[in-house]
Simulated assay, not measured.
Amino acid sequence: MKNWKFKNISLTLFSLIPSSIVNSFKTFSEPFQNNFENKVIENSRISKNQKIVIIRYLSIVFVLPFLLTQLLDIIIFGPLVDFLWSEQHLEVFINEDQEKEAFEELRLYKTRYYLNSLNQNTNIKLGESKSIFNQEDFEEKIREKAFEITEKYKNESKGSTKNILSDIFYFTVTVSLIIRSRQQMELVRFSLLRFIGNLSDAGKAFFLILITNLLVGFHSPHGWEVFLELVLKHFGLPENRDFIFTFIATIPVLLDTLIKYWVFSYLNSIAPSTVVTYKNMNE
């Protein structure tokens, strides 16, 4: 009976000790255990094997489909699009922006050619300018330039069509590989969380500030504008300014709200010191 009471008192006293002190004591006492060296070697071997598995997995999921897509683009997608474009006599321009750019480029060429012709002889009078301007040469040069611009935008339209086919194939293969290898993806997620957890508060705050400034910072609208223009041009879509400005005016604001909500509701509960460092660095 006395032993039972003594055990209860010991357990009660032990439960009153903060868990952080208990964990620190365990960490401090680990090097004095008999199998400590074997555990270190085993953990090092497991960590090395995990890194090899992660690198191999990421290569298979992302790099291999990319290389396969490039190969199919050369062997299948490219020749198929070229054949359809030549046989079906498809339109040169696949959107209005391309057509406007082509006409503007041809108009500038006409103006530049005419001015260069007039400047060939600086001593002539204005009334004699027609004597040095050869209409036939002018029309021939314009036809050559028009053909050059047509080929340029035809190839651009072909490239946009090839990009759509290649991206659909790449996205399908990559998503299929990720779905069929959830265990490896879980290992990647666990390793990423462990890497973030091992960072100092200043390191976590640095990456948080970097991400927020890229997405919703003062200079982010310019980055969003360039990114959207590249995406629209990649797929051969018209670069609609109203769509771009509407996107920039709404999406970054929504992302900023979600990030702030995550910081103050989730991160503040699991890592309050990181939130304090984040606030100080932002100030």
Rank of each mutant, 00 (worst) to 15 (best):
S19I: 15
S20Y: 02
N23F: 01
F25K: 06
F25D: 06
K26A: 07
T27S: 14
F28H: 08
F28Q: 10
S29A: 13
S29T: 12
S29H: 01
E30G: 00
Q33R: 12
N35W: 04
N38D: 15
V40G: 00
E42W: 02
E42G: 03
N43P: 00
S44I: 02
R45W: 06
I46Y: 09
N49P: 00
Q50R: 10
I52R: 12
V53I: 13
I55F: 10
L58D: 04
S59E: 04
S59L: 11
I60A: 15
F62Q: 11
F62V: 10
F62K: 12
V63H: 02
V63M: 09
L64R: 01
L64C: 02
P65A: 12
L67Q: 04
L68T: 15
Q70A: 12
L71D: 01
L72N: 00
L72Y: 02
I74Q: 09
I75N: 03
G78L: 05
P79C: 08
L80Q: 02
V81N: 12
V81M: 14
D82C: 01
D82V: 03
F83A: 14
F83D: 11
L84P: 05
W85P: 01
E87N: 15
H89R: 15
E91Y: 03
E91L: 07
I94Q: 15
E96P: 02
E96I: 08
E96G: 11
E99I: 01
K100Q: 14
E101A: 14
E101Y: 03
E101S: 06
A102T: 10
F103M: 13
E104Y: 09
E104F: 13
L108Y: 08
Y109D: 04
K110R: 15
T111V: 14
Y113E: 07
Y113D: 11
L115I: 14
L115G: 01
N116C: 08
S117A: 11
L118W: 02
N119Y: 05
Q120M: 09
N121H: 05
T122M: 13
N123H: 06
K125V: 07
L126F: 11
L126P: 00
G127H: 08
K130Y: 12
F133Q: 04
F133R: 03
N134C: 05
D137F: 09
F138W: 07
F138R: 03
F138E: 04
E140Y: 07
E140I: 10
K141G: 01
K145H: 03
K145N: 06
A146H: 04
A146D: 08
A146F: 02
F147W: 08
E148N: 09
I149C: 03
T150C: 08
E151H: 05
E151A: 06
K152Y: 09
K152E: 14
K152C: 02
